[in-house]
Amino acid sequence: MDAASSGAQTEPAPAAGAPERPSDEEILAQQNLIRAEQAQRSEYVGNEEPLSALKEEYINGNQNFVQKISKLESAYGRFRRTRGDGNCFFRGFVYAYLEGLLLGRDTAECSRITAVVQGWKMRLVEGGFQELVFEDAMDLLLDQVASVSKPDSGSGPQHEQLLINMRDDTVSNMIVMFLRLVTSCEVQRREDHFFPFIMGMYDEPPPTVELFCQRFVEPMGEESDHLHIVAVTDALQIPVRVVYLDSSGHPGGGSGAGGADLDATVHDFVPDACPPGTQPRVHLLYRPGHYDILYPR
């Protein structure tokens, strides 16, 4: 990153002699610029596309991807991109979940998740989070759940509205923020369970679970790891399937001559409390550093 150097060029040299660090303003201006560029390139949540559009991206590149996508096409026909702003897991997860509620008209699940989310209010307060920090965000998430379960109108306008909401800077980010706080709280509540994983994630791990959460879970834009997914799926009791798509397989990507023998790795995150055989409610496609939404056939 050259945020520091390019920021410093616009700052008049301080009279005191030694160069100063770029100011908060300069760093933030740089970050905002990057965000604005990303926003121009893509929505927080994109439109549904056929999986073949993804294959097109790799057709002249690594053939291992092409093979794996070809095999995926038997299980998944379509996918939806999310913006690569570090929040893609949480945003993709919650959008796919809400969309599933809406399209499935799953009122039982709506009631369940409403109760679970409301139950987090007290846990967050007990965990040291101020109510004023999360209550508006919690209400926004509950509003989305309530509106997808409304029986009156057809799914068309509601689906449209969900997409509009999840593309809105405030609504979309508030909901992502709420999920981050719940994830942080879950990790801290089950410190003994998560601490060993945190120790294994970094060369110089944060000394406490609390610091880990403050540094790597709560801030917007911090990318999600395996641990975040375990915590949030447990916290909300929502089973998720992640399909891992990477270049592993034939050396150098092969030529495709070896036949379509490569499979993407599948990992299910099923909360312990779910009965065995529980089907995932959300399907995500992971490519190193990024999550998109997958639609099963």
Partner: peptide, 10 residues
């Protein structure tokens, strides 16, 4: 005030 800001702060 930089990269360690969390929306849980006020």
């Amino acid at each position: 005030l930089k990269d360690q800001w969390s929306p849980a702060l006020t």
